[in-house]
Design a protein around this nucleic acid. Structure first.
Lengths: 247, 247
DNA sequence: CGCAGCTTTGAGTGTGATCAAATACGGTGG
DNA sequence: CCACCGTATTTGATCACACTCAAAGCTGCG
């Protein structure tokens, strides 16, 4: 069975701050060989753990293909999805360079990552060419985290979901894909956990968004038909409710 | 009228990583003098803005007395309290040393802060004596933010409030005060915003906690009577509900 | 003394959770 | 290739938690 059955397109990792290092480590030959993986590359299947919360930070992992979810577990054992990573994102990169991972990373599908030793990252921070890219990465993450906190804290379910969809679309746009096509690598449950909802609510809202013509969605394939409409939902909860006119 | 009417006790800033620098800048004489404030010190009254989100980061502000709330405003204008700072905490210290403040800081009461120029902070990061303290500070902040996200995302109101009270008590303990006495510098509204609730819910829960003997509370004075009980509430939502037996 | 802001408490409602069942899909093995 | 099974998803019915609206009390301050 081929490893990557989902037909991931050629990685467009031009956004990855470490793309130079990636090219050196491993090399494309490792991609085609089914032999033991060359150093600097990690292959994961759905559900595999890239690294676990609390374990020493040995490396960071730019995603080359596939998808990763970041899962945080509180000290009482409550678990919550705290982020999604796709091609071009750097997984495991954290502010303050803590000695241990502050969250776990789990593959959502067949996924391939580079592996940059943490010492090498420290070196890259001195590189005036890489430092801004890395810091920009960290800033975007922090910003998203803050927006998420506000969303979960005070926005309605429909607003939160609209926010996520717009966010995912914006990520796609950063990669140059602007047609509104999205492939949701994560399950409804992952989305629900990320947004502080239940999977039923997410499913119902997606159906509702579709029924009013904001999106088309079938399983993991999603297309944003009306971005402006979604933005209005994000801004105004009244515009779309779980139960409203047209039921 | 004296500036500090609330009778803040002598600052026990032994936790502040910058306490050495504080002592040099300004000096205690500035405290007693009603003359113009010496450089390196900032005095605020309730509601005053220490710094605003998006403005350039010029300095960090260790709190010497009083209280500060951190307020984040999303790009759509949704505001949420994202943290509280008291004596010994360092306000404005952020990971990645971003060029602009990622949130605002507003005084909750009459407050006095030191003012450490940001360049000086950069220097301190090289100091092997200060760096661990500063990074520990940042790590605690990040950890609290993550716990808060999980709490708001998936815990009941009573659990969230119990968490905050235990957190505040733990902070007091770090300062050496272990009798469970707390003075809430923030309003019910601030607490509600921080926890993703409404002020009525917070008020009702405090009353309920009191009625079952977990705490005593009168306005801003709060005493934790049964820390273990609170911890159980934090772990198990069933233990205390907004509406339950004994109404 | 009166005003303004904060807090408490009450009554009613709505959103989203919970419980439950049916369906569809993907992977596996016969 | 097809039957099977576990997982993911959809949809429905009901319920509870927390929000909303409302009013009154308390505190501090001018």
């Amino acid at each position: 069975m081929p490893f990557d059955r989902h037909g991931a397109s050629a990685p467009s990792c031009t956004l990855c701050p470490f793309r130079q290092a990636c090219r050196h480590a491993g090399g494309d030959s490792a991609l085609r060989a089914s032999a033991p993986l060359a150093p600097g590359r990690v292959r994961l299947r759905a559900g595999d753990v890239l690294y676990a919360q609390g374990r020493p930070t040995l490396a960071v992992y730019p995603v080359r293909s596939g998808g990763i979810k970041q899962v945080y577990e509180s000290h009482l054992g409550w678990r919550q999805v705290s982020g999604f990573f796709q091609c071009g994102d750097v997984c495991g990169l954290e502010a303050n360079e803590p000695a241990t991972h502050s969250a776990s990373a789990v593959a959502l599908q067949d996924t391939e990552c580079c592996s940059i030793p943490i010492e090498s990252v420290h070196g890259s921070l001195a590189d005036p060419g890489l430092r801004p890219a890395i810091q920009g990465n960290l800033r975007r993450q922090a910003s998203r985290q803050a927006e998420l906190l506000v969303a979960i804290g005070s926005m309605k379910a429909s607003q939160r979901l609209a926010m996520l969809l717009l966010d995912l679309a914006a990520e796609q746009a950063r990669r140059g894909i602007t047609d509104g096509e999205l492939t949701l690598a994560m399950t409804r449950n992952d989305i629900a956990s990320y947004l502080g909802l239940t999977l039923e609510t997410v499913s119902r809202l997606l159906s509702r968004f579709r029924s009013v013509g904001l999106i088309t969605v079938r399983h993991r394939m999603l297309r944003i038909v009306d971005p402006d409409g979604l933005a209005e939902v994000h801004a105004d909860p009244e515009r779309i409710a779980l139960r409203g006119p047209g039921d």
